[in-house]
């Protein structure tokens, strides 16, 4: 088990290295930040001085090594636009996205898995057909449209919830969180619901397929022959049997929502990293883009590692180096 963890950590480090090189090369291939940074009527001297100051006169590989060196010391550089350390900038926005993404994936999972299990357990009931209709909608209706309809309905017409922005936050560990106050939650609810719809649809499909398969197995038949009630069978047997794909998708969805909640953040003016990255792309704020993408890669690698390790918790057959009897 320990050997497995070490092997996975090394793999993760390699992925991070490759990702940082790709991101660095990719971002430096687009546009020249100097054009954005200094005014067009600056003298040639000022221009040359700026290029030297940002190290842009060096060859690409030297720039990359310098960047990597700073990275290892936790220095992501200064934002061209905001004039502050990139790390501080991203970290000031990350909690907003983190709680939004987590809320969305949790809502999707906690609602989607029980609904999906029901739909798989009684595939022909009217409720199950309604559940499947919801999942088709969740897959096919575009997020931005649902966001606008949610705002129109709950914020404009009914006036129950705020239409956007983050509202008040409560400071814990030096970071502001919305989900700790009732009022903060009222701001979080609509964007989280908006983002969760797709995840809900996905979790319903996944749990339904798994449950339908599990219900036909001899394991379930044997449990029934022992007199277990259907509810106990679903809760204790089926839920455990279908948990691995659910945890996998949970991790993937959490990662991609953290990285790409841009549309919802824009519609609800949610001050998260998604908006930050779009702004930094339009202003060619290179250090922010690079740091953001490296951070996203780091989040994905970490989440995947946690998911892989949780497999061993969920399936005892994977615990001994994958050797099943």
């Amino acid at each position: 088990m320990l050997g497995y963890v070490i092997q996975r950590l090394l793999q993760a480090a390699l992925v991070m290295l490759a990702m940082s090189a790709l991101v660095f090369a990719g971002v430096y291939a687009i546009g020249n930040p100097i054009d954005v940074l200094i005014s067009p009527d600056a003298t040639q001297d000022i221009r040359a001085e700026a290029i030297r100051r940002y190290g842009l006169d060096l060859p690409l590989w030297q720039q990359y090594l310098a960047f990597l060196g700073r990275l290892l010391r936790g220095d992501f550089g200064q934002s061209f636009v905001f004039g502050m350390p990139v790390l501080d900038l991203i970290l000031s926005r990350l909690p907003a996205t983190l709680e939004l993404a987590l809320a969305a994936v949790l809502i999707g999972t906690l609602l989607g898995v029980p609904l999906g299990i029901h739909a798989g357990y009684r595939p022909d009931s009217a409720l199950s057909r309604a559940i499947m209709a919801v999942s088709v909608l969740g897959f096919s209706v575009p997020t931005f449209w649902v966001g606008l309809i949610l705002i129109l309905t709950f914020a404009v017409n009914l006036d129950w919830l705020p239409a956007g922005d983050r509202g008040p936050t409560l400071e814990v560990f030096g970071v502001g969180w919305s989900f700790l106050t009732l009022e903060g939650l009222s701001f979080l609810l609509l964007p989280a619901l908006n983002l969760s719809l797709f995840k809900l649809a996905m979790m319903i499909r996944l749990s339904r397929a798994g449950t339908r398969e599990a219900m036909l197995t001899d394991t379930v038949k044997f449990a029934r022959a022992a007199g277990l009630s259907d509810l106990t069978i679903l809760r204790r047997h089926v839920l455990r049997l279908i948990s691995i794909p659910i945890v996998t998708v949970f991790g993937l969805e959490l990662g991609s929502t953290l990285a790409f909640a841009v549309v919802t953040e824009t519609i609800f003016s949610w001050p998260g990293v998604g908006k930050l990255i779009i702004d930094s792309i339009t202003s060619l704020d290179r250090p922010v883009m690079v740091a953001y993408l490296v951070l996203v890669a780091f989040l994905f690698v970490t989440i995947n590692l946690v998911v892989d390790l949780s497999y061993a918790l969920l399936d005892p057959r994977l615990r001994r180096g994958g050797a099943a009897a």
């Binding site: 001899d218 007199g227 049997l241």
Partner: peptide, 21 residues
């Protein structure tokens, strides 16, 4: 009644016991 007064044993114990419990 099942399990308490009438019980059943199946063909393949590999398939009947839940592998994750």
């Amino acid at each position: 009644l099942r399990g308490r007064r009438i019980a059943m044993v199946f063909q393949d114990p590999q398939a009947t016991l839940n592998p994750v419990l």
